[in-house]
């Protein structure tokens, strides 16, 4: 199929940037979106133009590195997938496709479609862990039974891949879904409960300091999340936060 790509080009963090149009032909429905981008880039390279920079790595929807805002939606029109899992069969011959980077103050553009998501790491550094040393001299793994339901919920929260689609699709560029997933995971498990209060207070503080917006519960994040992380986690984090703020 033939497509008309409108892609954000920005040469560096200080560059103003603009949308540029690239027609592309010979796209096949079985190609993934990023393979289509590869094809475009190979054409650009061989014709002497500069290829479009975009983040990607595992190409199986788990590393969370790919990050495009495609036709007005994070990771494109399909649900429950990352951009690398989006296939061109979701588009039609002759379509115009807008491709933009994540837009958020906390995710500044580095080049073209590549953004800096290190703010997520800094939030994690402020509390996204259990303070246990790595000696292996902990208690036996089966000494604390964990109700299956809690373990399953913790797992579901823990499947967050940190891609930032939640921030990108939130009208407020809020990182609540991301932060709440980690807070939920650890607050649901006995191992994480010990420092639950400090964790939630510190992580929320860092999140605010990084310049993310506030949660107004529009639910866009949950819909666009490639891993289907539930809004329930945000409610749980709010609960944990209130508990922490009132009793600490």
């Amino acid at each position: 199929m033939k497509l008309n790509l409108k892609i954000w080009r920005q040469n560096g963090p200080q560059d103003k940037g603009e949308m540029k149009t690239y027609p592309i032909d010979g796209v096949d429905g079985d190609m993934s979106f990023l393979e289509m981008m590869d094809m475009l880039n190979n054409q650009l390279v061989e014709s002497g133009e500069s290829p479009v920079a975009f983040d990607h790595d595992c190409r199986e929807g788990i590393c969370g590195m790919c990050s495009l805002y495609i036709n007005g939606e994070a990771h494109g029109p399909d649900r429950g997938v990352t951009t690398c899992q989006l296939h061109m069969r979701k588009f039609n011959d002759g379509d115009t496709i807008y491709i933009e980077p994540w837009r958020a103050k906390a995710f500044p553009v580095i080049k073209d479609l590549v953004v800096d998501r290190s703010s997520f790491d800094r939030i994690m550094n402020s509390g996204g862990f259990v303070s246990v040393n790595t000696s292996g001299n902990t208690v036996d793994a089966n000494s604390i039974p964990i109700p299956k339901d809690d373990a399953d919920k913790a797992f579901e929260a823990a499947t967050c891949i940190g891609c930032g689609a939640c921030v990108a699709s939130c009208k407020n560029a809020s990182a609540m879904l991301f932060v709440s997933a980690k807070v939920s995971q650890l607050s649901l498990l006995p191992q994480g409960k010990v420092e639950a209060k400090e964790r939630v207070l510190n992580m929320v503080q860092t999140m605010d300091d990084e310049g993310f917006g506030n949660c107004t519960n529009t639910g866009a994040c949950e819909v666009e999340c490639p891993k289907g992380i539930s809004l329930e986690n945000i409610a749980r984090m709010n609960r944990e936060y209130l508990k922490g703020a009132l009793t600490k």
């Binding site: 862990f129 259990v130 246990v132 790595t134 000696s135 292996g136 902990t138 208690v139 793994a141 604390i144 373990a151 399953d152 913790a154 797992f155 823990a158 995971q185 650890l186 498990l189 191992q191 994480g192």
Partner: peptide, 8 residues
């Protein structure tokens, strides 16, 4: 170790 770290 992993269970202690909160690996679900």
């Amino acid at each position: 170790q992993c269970v202690a770290q909160g690996v679900p």
